Amino acid sequence: MAEHKIEDNVDVEGINYFTIYELPDSQDKKAPCVLLAHALMSNLHMYDATVKALHAAGYSTLRYDHHKITERRMSLGGQLAYHMDDLTRHMHQLVKARTGQSHLKAVVGCSIGGVLALRYAMMFPKDVDQIVSIAAPGIKAPEDKKPLWSQRIRLFEEDQEAGTDKLCHATVNRWFPGGPEDDALREESLMHVKTCSIQGYRLLADTIRNYDYSDEVGRIEKVDCLIGGGTEDTAISLDELQDVAEKIRGAQFVRIQGAGHLPPMHKAQEFSDLMLPFLGSPQ
């Protein structure tokens, strides 16, 4: 395997994280690193285009899959349960394990990853300069969406028993609400969601129903934040995300025109055109 791209698995408290750490096109081993957190049920490949843009701009990247549970821990301890804070701590540990140091240039997160990115700024403000939080379901778990996760878990279980992929198709269609022009993206994303384990889905579904940072988000002061989402995303409220941005000193808010729930895939160029000027030069 080429030295500039290192794939490895890291176990943290029962979760087996598959990670990819990559150097920029310049192969600069001292290049600042950007950590990327993907959407629930997707995987790290939803950021393929984003990573390519970051590498061309001179950044190294670390991305990971956060939905795979080690069978050993599952068999010994039963169903694992975590809070969003636990998953954020895991991200911090992954950075140290894979890069050898704690500091990041930025954390980029989408959907549940968008929440994790914001929480990272609250928990580790000295270890990250910037946050890009896209398509977060809110700064607190939406009450009206909590029953949906129970329904989706049941559908996943039914799919497992029947050998069908109803939840996978429903999820992808919800993420990309456009017409035939998005068919290729749906097919690509369908391959991503099929890698999600039922154990990981349950864990993250429980996690995303149980957080509330509304009293803490305003304390983010020393981390620059870019917050936003797609105008065609029916899973979030852009007005609520704008309210979140207004609570953070100096935060920028963006509406990504025509994008569904995964702007880094759906509108890859537009997303990079917003992200890269915000991050600035890696030097």
Results as ranks from 00 to 15, higher is better:
residue 165 D to I: 02
residue 166 K to C: 06
residue 167 L to F: 09
residue 169 H to I: 06
residue 170 A to Q: 13
residue 170 A to L: 10
residue 171 T to S: 14
residue 173 N to G: 07
residue 174 R to W: 03
residue 176 F to I: 02
residue 178 G to Y: 05
residue 178 G to L: 05
residue 178 G to M: 06
residue 178 G to F: 12
residue 183 D to K: 12
residue 184 A to D: 13
residue 184 A to F: 14
residue 188 E to Y: 15
residue 191 M to H: 12
residue 196 C to W: 07
residue 200 G to M: 00
residue 200 G to V: 01
residue 201 Y to N: 03
residue 205 A to K: 01
residue 206 D to E: 08
residue 208 I to E: 12
residue 210 N to D: 12
residue 211 Y to I: 00
residue 218 G to R: 06
residue 219 R to A: 14
residue 220 I to D: 08
residue 223 V to E: 00
residue 223 V to S: 04
residue 227 I to L: 04
residue 229 G to F: 07
residue 231 T to R: 00
residue 235 A to C: 13
residue 236 I to H: 10
residue 237 S to R: 01
residue 237 S to H: 10
residue 238 L to D: 07
residue 238 L to T: 06
residue 239 D to G: 09
residue 241 L to C: 00
residue 241 L to P: 02
residue 241 L to D: 10
residue 245 A to C: 01
residue 247 K to R: 10
residue 248 I to C: 08
residue 249 R to L: 11
residue 250 G to Q: 06
residue 251 A to M: 00
residue 251 A to S: 04
residue 252 Q to H: 07
residue 253 F to I: 00
residue 255 R to C: 05
residue 255 R to M: 07
residue 259 A to R: 08
residue 260 G to E: 11
residue 261 H to G: 05
residue 261 H to T: 06
residue 262 L to E: 05
residue 262 L to Q: 01
residue 262 L to C: 08
residue 263 P to M: 10
residue 264 P to L: 02
residue 265 M to E: 13
